[in-house]
Design a protein around this nucleic acid. Structure first.
Lengths: 249, 249
DNA sequence: AAAAAATTAGACAGCCTTGTCTAATTTGTC
DNA sequence: GACAAATTAGACAAGGCTGTCTAATTTTTT
């Protein structure tokens, strides 16, 4: 519990750049050949630690729990990650990388040349919810950030830089292009992007906050409601009060 | 740490109905005359406990910290609230009641007969953000719910029932009335209410998630952007792309 | 099959926290 | 001012958790 006052976590992060190796434990786990069972255990530990840290919080999590959940002895946890603090850093880094990868991949599926802009945006919103917001990484990362970011601000700097900031800009650029192509009427693409994000979560907020995972039907309905409103605000053809709302189900 | 598996917290809640008294400590604090310093200490303990629980999480908080922050000895904390668990319950109940009171009071300021609907809704959105979402109770409650609601679901049932659920219905009813009066064009008032809530937070999400408190200017800009979009979607006069957006600042 | 590496179970010291207890002090009331 | 109640500081036991160590076992490689 060294870092209650100061934040040595910040000193740890920059020293390790690579995603899943290069931790340089004292036993140097197989210099040339990476053993299969070894890395499998490492991954299992990271996964279990993610679950436990998110469920119990940093202070409430204990190593025995993590070891048991990973199907590994406590000593093995200490062999792979020197102490609880370094393990936590590794978990946050892992979640951040996976989450950013998911967001990036999903952004690539944005409908740049939409056939049916409403249907295409709804499908995109569903993907965004499923792959970025309601999935394991999204939920865990959000929970950890809310719980620990005030105590260890530097730990989440990579997320802040590569995560929402870049996501919003990227989405804003897509909207700007759609507007330029005549599909939308957008004054400020950045605002539109933020509001799009907000809208697709409007109906899921409560479920997410309580830790639940919405069903596919709920995600689809949320996306539909969101895109309908989004297009009423920013669409070119203002067919207001046209369709019978799907939303009242 | 009795309630890691079962949830005795649920058994505690219903037994105490009144807001700030009736805890019935073994010493029965002054049967007829409530001493002033006594209640002041109780409030101070609840406040400090709220701060510490939110900052450190339930597991990370410790009674010495709370006592110190309340300017009170540890024994006094135990005199007022038997143990850590009951203290936590009292804190959550206090936050829930204050938060709900704030939300209710703010809802009463909804512009039922708007002169300038955009300006009136913006002002209302600012109040909603300031008094319900960005204030101490809102932030703390949200953080505690995200951190602990999965472990102690019954503890937050009062919030779930009297909080967002009723708030959304109430706001939906107001929007329905505005629509009936010809100010808005709303298909599903419930969806519109949820989306209004989402929109007024779109620009503040990042700041709030990191634990920060947005400035008045940021709140105003967020409310302005939200209401502009909301009215583009649901307003009667679709003056799209009319005003030069304030949002690009 | 033999050797090397990793893993395991268990014990262990050190530290922290909860909740109790006691004696002394302060506060509020008559 | 006297009395009763509340508060305080401090010590204390019981229990939990971290991180280390050791000896035995398993897995992997040669």
């Amino acid at each position: 519990m060294v870092f209650m006052e100061t934040q040595p976590i910040a000193d740890i992060l920059p020293t390790e750049g690579l995603p899943t190796e290069g931790i340089s434990t004292p036993d140097t786990p197989t210099p040339g050949l990476p053993p299969r069972g070894h890395e499998a255990k490492r991954a299992s530990i990271i996964d279990a630690a993610g679950d436990v840290f998110c469920r119990e919080g940093y202070a409430g999590a204990n190593i025995d729990m993590i070891a048991a959940e990973a199907g590994v002895s406590r000593q093995t946890v200490y062999n792979h990650h020197h102490d609880k603090e370094k393990l936590f850093v590794a978990v946050v880094r892992d979640l951040t990388e996976r989450s950013n990868a998911g967001v990036f991949a999903t952004l690539l599926t944005f409908p740049d040349q939409p056939g049916d802009i409403e249907a295409d945006l709804i499908a995109f919103a569903v993907r965004l919810n499923r792959n970025c917001i309601c999935n394991r990484e999204g939920k865990f990362l959000r929970k950890l950030i809310q719980a620990e970011s005030e105590r260890y601000p530097e730990l989440f700097a990579p997320w802040r830089n590569d995560g929402p900031g870049k996501t919003w800009s990227a989405l804003a650029a897509r909207f700007a292009r759609l507007a330029h192509a005549g599909y939308l009427q957008v004054d400020d693409p950045d605002v539109a992007a933020r509001q799009f994000f907000s809208l697709i979560n409007a109906d899921l907020h409560m479920t997410m906050m309580l830790g639940g995972t919405p069903t596919d039907a709920e995600v689809l309905e949320a996306a539909t409601n969101a895109v309908r409103t989004f297009l009423r605000a920013f669409g070119k053809t203002h067919g207001q009060a046209a369709q019978p709302a799907l939303a009242d189900a």
